[in-house]
Amino acid sequence: MDPVEIVSGDSPVVLGLPHTGTYVPTDIRNKLNDRGKALADTDWNIHKLYDGLLPGVTTVRATFHRYVIDANRDPSGQSLYPGQNTTGLVPLTNFEGEPIWTQPPSGGEVEHRRETWHAPYHAALEAELARVKARHGVAILYDCHSIRSRIEYLFDGTLPDFNIGTNNGATCAPVIAETVEQVCRAAQGYSTIMNGRFKGGWTTRHYGQPETGIHAIQMELAQSTYMEEAAPWPYLHDRAEALRPHLSDILHRLERLALEGALT
């Protein structure tokens, strides 16, 4: 199994998809308990939700599951949210705080997984961002995520529908954050927050360097906006079709900002 699937386009926008993969090698799957084998913390159906929204967009998608190794975590293992419940580079629990392994990985095994899965994904993402920047002078990484709207272990209450993350404004030009937030807040029937519980994962923070011409923003969607939040995690066509125009509007506006030179 190739750790990454790449579709190279001619747009200045790149979609990162680190958490939609469900592949788990047999030797790793055998060390998961039944809870882990359920793969409940997948960003289910996100690749389907974004498919076809922006012609020419580049996509970089991890094929492996986040329980193998999390492509959106710092490879050093440093926590993204010190002092808050979260999951690590190789999660030891699910999003409910429950153990997922019968045999947790050793340090050597984590390093092997980093080299085999995490590193190739980021090598591909870095290469695509560099290619896009060389073509347009700038690149916008839009990192696509979703999560169940209620997870007591990770956050209180119900998550807003649109959770925009820019690491408190550090990862992109202000006009990018303003544009995305404007579209989200204008979407009737949806709730929005900027840099709330999810401020952008390692991918957004690592690549988002506006001073170099690479901008990054994360969108964490509440899964209730487009799917059923329980196994077998069905995609709900009517909900998704109501949401997709807003996501399309975001991507088209970001592309236009880049093409019109509004980021330099």
Rank of each mutant, 00 (worst) to 15 (best):
L247A: 02
E115K: 13
G108T: 08
N33K: 01
T93G: 02
P91F: 00
A258N: 07
V180H: 00
L54S: 03
Y207T: 08
L154A: 07
P82F: 03
H122L: 02
A222Y: 06
A38E: 14
S248G: 15
P99C: 04
A123N: 13
N167M: 12
T42Q: 14
T179M: 00
T179I: 01
Y23K: 04
N30R: 15
M227P: 07
F198D: 02
H215G: 00
E255M: 01
R256L: 12
L141K: 00
K37S: 05
H65W: 09
P3K: 13
E98F: 06
T225S: 02
H122S: 00
G169L: 13
L259A: 05
Q182D: 03
N45M: 02
Y81M: 13
Y142G: 02
T158Q: 14
P55G: 01
W117H: 05
L92S: 12
G169Q: 09
N30F: 04
R185Y: 04
H122I: 01
I140R: 03
T225P: 02
D2H: 13
F155L: 14
R239H: 12
H65F: 11
D74V: 08
D27A: 12
L254V: 07
A139N: 05
E126C: 10
I28F: 06
R61Q: 15
D143A: 12
P105K: 09
T87I: 11
V183Q: 00
T116V: 01
A134W: 06
I28T: 13
L159Y: 08
N94T: 09
D34T: 12
L259S: 03
L129R: 09
I28N: 10
L257V: 04
M219E: 14
L80N: 13
T59D: 07
Q218A: 13
T22R: 15
Q209R: 15
R253Q: 14
T116I: 01
F162R: 06
T86N: 05
N30D: 15
V7A: 14
R73H: 09
L159W: 09
F95Y: 14
N167H: 15
Y50Q: 07
G189N: 06
I217L: 15
T58S: 15
E229M: 05
R253I: 03
D2S: 14
R253T: 03
Q218M: 11
T204K: 01
S79P: 15
H246F: 10
E181N: 03
H19A: 01
N72H: 11
A62P: 07
P75D: 09
T26F: 06
S248F: 01
G16A: 15
P25M: 01
L221R: 13
K133P: 09
D238M: 04
R114E: 08
R114V: 14
Y226M: 00
V4P: 08
P91D: 03
Y153D: 06
D41K: 07
P120D: 03
P104A: 15
P25F: 01
I176F: 02
T22F: 07
T63N: 13
N72C: 10
P210K: 01
R244L: 01
W44N: 07
